[in-house]
Simulated scan of single mutants.
Amino acid sequence: MEQQLFTNRLQDLKSQSLSRAVEEQLEQMILSGELLPGERINESYLSNTLKISRAPIREACRQLAQYGMVENRVGKGSYVRQVNLEEALELYELRGVLDALAAEKASQNASSEGIAGLGLLVEQMRSFAARHESTEYFATNLKFHHQIVQLAGSAALIDLYEVVFKKLSLFRQKTLSQPDRLQRSLSQHEGIFAAIQNRDAQLGSQLARSHVEEAKGVLLATKV
């Protein structure tokens, strides 16, 4: 009996690990634009491509639905969620508060190694911006903000941020496609990094909040 329980538990762990890997792959496909808002997630194609059953794919879709990145429609399958403008603006407001808090706490709590890692991401962003590689810049931009939240050292903040950030990411890449937006964005990230590096919590918080507010303004301008 105990052996059977152990075997069942082991199978559960294997299934969870596979589902998590599929979840990360789907998330990357969504954030990179390979899967577009409103697009149906083809379970059959993924199953054949990844050489796995549909069960971990469905579990991954359920997890992503909790983050608001996927919408599961009864009898119709799973679709990349579409975020409307009103919801995006509400998410930007939440994001501004969370980013400001994260930068403040990171300025106070980040280790020297953590700050050095953040600096490497800024260097990568400079390189991508110089070559006008917006997709690569966007991906590194995501890592930059996630790293600041990690450096803040608050598990509760990480949990809240993940939900808001992932839903908003469905909308955000559009703002980086505007003329000169990459260089402007880079300049702002450099300022945030410098404030954290100098342990200036107040300035870091202000710059992080302003960065989000400007991104929200760019979004509104593109919708007028």
Rank of each mutant, 00 (worst) to 15 (best):
A103L: 09
I52Y: 06
Q108F: 07
V163S: 08
L10I: 15
N42M: 07
Q173Y: 09
E113Q: 10
A103N: 06
Y79T: 10
S17F: 14
A208C: 10
V97E: 12
E27L: 12
L10H: 12
T175Y: 07
I115P: 02
H132Q: 13
F144H: 12
E113M: 10
L5N: 11
F128M: 07
L120H: 09
L101N: 00
T135V: 12
N72R: 08
R20W: 13
G153H: 08
A156G: 09
E133P: 02
A65H: 02
L207M: 15
E190N: 08
A139G: 03
L120P: 02
R9P: 01
S47P: 04
Q202M: 09
I57V: 10
T7P: 03
G117H: 08
G119R: 07
T140Y: 05
E136V: 06
Q183M: 09
A88D: 05
N141D: 15
G217E: 15
V122G: 01
Q188V: 05
S19M: 06
L5Y: 12
G33P: 04
A130L: 11
K216D: 11
Q16Y: 14
T175M: 13
S44G: 06
S210R: 10
E93Q: 13
V218P: 07
I30G: 02
N42G: 07
R62Y: 00
E43L: 08
Y92S: 03
Q147M: 12
H189P: 02
E133N: 12
I41F: 04
Q188N: 13
V97K: 10
Q206P: 02
L121F: 13
Q16N: 13
I52K: 03
R81I: 00
A103K: 04
R184G: 15
L160S: 00
K166Y: 10
A60L: 08
G191R: 13
A88F: 06
C61W: 02
L13S: 10
R54I: 15
A201V: 10
I57Y: 01
L85M: 11
I192E: 03
R184I: 08
Q202F: 09
T140P: 02
C61F: 05
F144C: 03
L50E: 05
A155K: 07
L170H: 03
D180L: 14
P56D: 09
A195D: 04
S111I: 06
S177L: 14
R95E: 12
S154Q: 11
A155W: 08
E43V: 14
H145F: 13
Q188W: 07
M29F: 14
Q173A: 09
L26T: 04
L203P: 00
H211G: 04
L91K: 03
A139V: 11
S44H: 05
L220W: 06
E214F: 11
V74P: 03
I57N: 02
E27R: 14
K167V: 00
M1N: 01
D99I: 01
Q178T: 15
T175H: 03
